[in-house]
Computed example of a mutant assay.
Amino acid sequence: MHYFQYNARDMLGKAKRGKVQAENRSEALEKLQSQQLIVFELRELNRTLNKELSFGKRVKKKEFIIFLRQLSTLIEAGVSLVEATGLLQEQTKDKFLKDTLKYVRIDLVEGVRFSHSVEKHPKIFPELFVNMIRAGEASGELDDVLNKMAVYYEKQYDMRQKVITAMSYPVLVGFVAVAICVALLVVVFPQFTGMFSTMNAELPAYTAFVLRLSETMQKYWYLGALLLLLCFILYRIIVVRPTGKLFLDTLKLKIPVLGSFYQKAILARMTRTVSSLLESSVPILDTLQISGRVIQNTVMEQVMQECYKAIEKGDSLAGPMEAHWAFPPMVTQMIRVGEKSGSLDSLLQRAANFYEQELDYAAERLKALLEPVLILVLSVMVGGIVTAVILPMFSLYENL
Rank of each mutant, 00 (worst) to 15 (best):
S281P: 03
V118Y: 00
L42V: 07
L285P: 02
K14H: 03
V274A: 11
K16M: 14
P204G: 04
G136V: 00
Q89P: 04
C231N: 10
G224W: 12
Y262W: 07
V130S: 00
F4W: 15
K155T: 10
W221L: 03
M132N: 00
I238D: 01
L101N: 05
A183G: 08
I38Y: 15
Y169F: 14
L203H: 04
V331T: 08
Y169T: 00
I233F: 15
F67K: 06
E30A: 11
L277S: 05
F394G: 10
V178M: 06
P204D: 00
V257W: 13
E52F: 10
E63M: 09
E137N: 08
K93D: 12
L229C: 12
E279M: 07
I106K: 14
L88R: 04
S197H: 13
P126N: 07
P372W: 14
P392I: 01
F96S: 05
R212N: 14
A351E: 04
D94N: 15
R43E: 08
L32R: 02
F192R: 06
R25S: 08
P126L: 02
A388R: 02
L142C: 03
L87N: 12
I375Y: 03
S80G: 03
Q333D: 09
E83D: 13
R105M: 12
I375F: 05
E23N: 10
Y397R: 10
I233V: 15
P170I: 02
Q305K: 14
G78I: 05
E398F: 01
E279F: 12
V171Y: 03
S72V: 08
S34C: 07
N147Q: 11
V163C: 07
L317I: 15
Y103I: 01
L211R: 09
L253S: 06
R113W: 02
Q357R: 14
